[in-house]
Amino acid sequence: MTTRPELRLGGHLAPGIIAVALFVIMAVVFVGAPLGDPVGFDDATAIQNETLQSESPTGDYGSVSANGQTYAVAYNGSEETANVSVANDPGVGVDFREVDTTGDGQSDTVYAISRTSITENIGYLMFAVDSDQRSAPGETFLVAFEIIDMVLVGALVGAVVLARRDEGGEVVAALGLRDSDESPGTSAGQVAADGGTEDGGDN
């Protein structure tokens, strides 16, 4: 049998007003906050502008630093937007691309382009893995991850202890009403927290 959802209204005036008032306050604060355009994780924005740090006299190789590491790059300085070959391969995480910004026909800037997916980066951050391929900024979360692990152990132990029904040390069906059973809590379940009174201590 299915029933149509019915709204339950009425008697909710005060909480409703509180909730709406809070919402209005929050909305005013959020609209008033000087938020600009989001940076996002696109290729276009993940590009870090890296200026060549050194250049060989012939102008066909130099070094560039990205993500805290310095790479030697070799490139053909006369061709615009030509791909750069990277001497010590930084891996798939970062690509370098040269661009001529001054318009003198010489490439003067190398862009480091992130090639790592967001999901991959989440993995690096979560396990605090030092990797050249880590391209998105963020804090590392190894400790938090491990604490979560313990939380799950604690939560599951707690949930199982609570949800399991047992009588006289023996596990019976996991669910059901206590009162529908023949022998509710024996002395093992009797507790002293309320002075041992049967009614839960409402005296």
């Binding site: 994780f41 989440i122 979560m126």
Partner: peptide, 17 residues
């Protein structure tokens, strides 16, 4: 998304767990 910084996404994962 606004900061282009993954901290928020990872924290959101933790909140889910």
């Amino acid at each position: 998304q606004y900061y282009g910084n993954l901290t928020g996404q990872v924290f959101a994962l933790f909140t889910m767990a």
